[in-house]
Amino acid sequence: MKLPVTLFVLCFACSLSAAAETGTTVKDTELKKEPFIDAATLATLPGQTTVEILKRQGGWTQVKPPTADKGWVRMLNLRLGDGKPRQEGSGSGIGALFNVARSGSSGTTVTTGVRGLDITKDTLQNASPNPGELKRMHGFSVSKAEALKLAGSAKLHKQSVEYVEPGAVRPSGNASSSDAPASSWGNN
């Protein structure tokens, strides 16, 4: 009886530690010394290389590959996991928690604990409108001024960025924001 509890605790510990996460490159990927495109290239990781994920910074993820020192790869060149097909409950974290809880002696699904409410096709089809809850939702609305106050306290600064068209890949290279006109709406 003790083993499942230990597993449960161990698993929970793993889920809290980001360092336990693995990722796999989707294509040949340059491993950079710093999270910048023009940083020194430490190595080129072939596609399907499984790496340990350390942290993310913007579009870059710091990783530790099996055969090289830690460095930075483009976040979008990574997928979480070891690249093998996944099965129900085989992931880390919460999914694994439930998996452990479920894998009783019979191996069949035994619901343990309070799982919480699912939103599925069935629950949506069977739902009745809930105007009272809608009213409650409206009660949480905030004014523009309140919203801007929260943004200001996190030092969020408005930037000019135009919408992008599909396939419009035009690397601009340097840090110029002159390629977009000032937006005509916003923090007034």
């Binding site: 910048f36 495109i37 913007g58 579009g59 483009r74 979008l76 060149n77 930037q159 960025v161 992008v164 599909p166 396939g167 419009a168 890949v169 035009r170 690397p171 601009s172 290279g173 340097n174 840090a175 110029s176 924001s177």
Partner: peptide, 13 residues
């Protein structure tokens, strides 16, 4: 990935 590569790197967020 095709869309963002480099294009969004220079925005400080």
């Amino acid at each position: 990935s095709g869309l963002m590569q480099s294009k969004f790197d220079h925005y400080q967020g």
